[in-house]
């Protein structure tokens, strides 16, 4: 057999004969090599060990994974604290994000048990495509919109919406992206009454979801924003700014719906959380945090 086709490691060792300067001098690599290899191995093995432990523990077995719209960022933790008192057996883990994105991920069978959307269309479509439990659709809240400015802003949201938004000092107006964020669609609808939209379209900046939109204004990057009341009421936002609610007649009712995911690993947990959201206690918290009760509670 030709020596040249021996195992690569043999080649490595032999290379020192041919190029001694390169291979034997930098002792750093000789010492670092085994170190790196050990590190890599421990990483891999420890990682595996950790994963199996996780899935085997009883806590993880009763985990409820929730995909929630960004406007629930503040109300949901409060609700979950109460839910935990009643159902200590469930460990709820929440991922907040844009409803459209999460709908796409659930349609690819993302491992969520319950989906709390910022609208009712996304859950409906998930049921249609077979990714939501057919009779589990439930409206749980109605979203409200506000005009929000920082405390030191020259703009006064107490004036009419037209006056406030047409003010040249409102150079950047933040709304959520109407292509996929329900709050963005509602904002555009509110602006389209009285043809306001055309006049300010070039001053709009679009947030990926409503939480990011709120942040645009709170950070001062935008002069004014159309955001969820649920976010404007959050401590950090309400301390930093003023807001004025946009009358509900100006945009289609923003019913927020939820659905139990068809491939849910923990349908019982999802069911329990759904029931709690719709209970008097859950609804009270949602109202405290700036939502209205949906007309037809299931």
């Amino acid at each position: 057999m030709n020596v040249s086709f021996s195992f690569p490691f043999a080649c490595f060792r032999r290379s020192s004969v041919f190029i001694p300067a390169l291979w034997s001098r930098p002792r750093l690599f000789q010492t670092l090599g085994p170190l790196l290899a050990t590190l890599a191995l421990s990483f891999l093995t420890l990682g595996c060990g950790k994963g199996t432990k996780d899935s085997a523990s009883p806590v993880a077995a009763n985990a409820v994974t929730v995909a929630a719209a960004a406007d629930l960022q503040f109300a949901l933790p409060e609700i979950l604290a109460l839910f935990h008192q009643e159902h200590p057996e469930f460990q709820v883990r929440v991922t907040y994000g844009s409803s459209g994105n999460m709908r796409a991920q659930i349609a690819q069978r993302a491992p969520f048990d319950l989906f709390l959307s910022a609208d009712i269309e996304f859950p409906k479509r998930l049921i249609e495509s077979g990714h939501g439990v057919a009779d589990s659709l439930f409206p749980y809240a109605v979203g409200r919109l506000v005009l929000y400015v920082l405390n030191d802003s020259p703009l006064d949201p107490e004036r009419t919406m037209e006056q406030t938004l047409l003010d040249p000092r409102a150079r950047r107006i933040a709304i959520a992206n109407p292509r996929h964020a329900p709050y963005g669609q509602a904002a555009v609808a509110a602006l389209q009454t009285d043809d306001l939209y055309e006049q300010i379209a070039d001053r709009l900046v679009l947030g990926e979801n409503i939480a990011q939109t709120a942040q645009f204004v709170q950070s001062g990057a935008a002069d004014i924003g159309i955001i969820a009341l649920a976010l404007a009421l959050a401590p950090r936002m309400s301390e930093a700014g003023r807001f004025w609610e946009i009358p509900l007649e100006r945009f289609p009712e923003m019913v927020q719906g939820g659905v139990i995911v068809r491939h849910a690993k923990n349908p019982e947990g999802a069911e329990a959380l759904r029931a709690f959201l719709l209970s008097a206690e859950g609804q009270r918290v949602l109202q405290d945090f700036g939502f209205l009760m949906p007309e037809a509670l299931p």
């Binding site: 040249s4 086709f5 690569p8 080649c11 490595f12 032999r14 290379s15 390169l22």
Partner: peptide, 15 residues
Amino acid sequence: GAGRLPTFFRVGVPL
């Protein structure tokens, strides 16, 4: 006569 694989490991990689 070093062949392709040894050339890769002994010359290419170290350089």
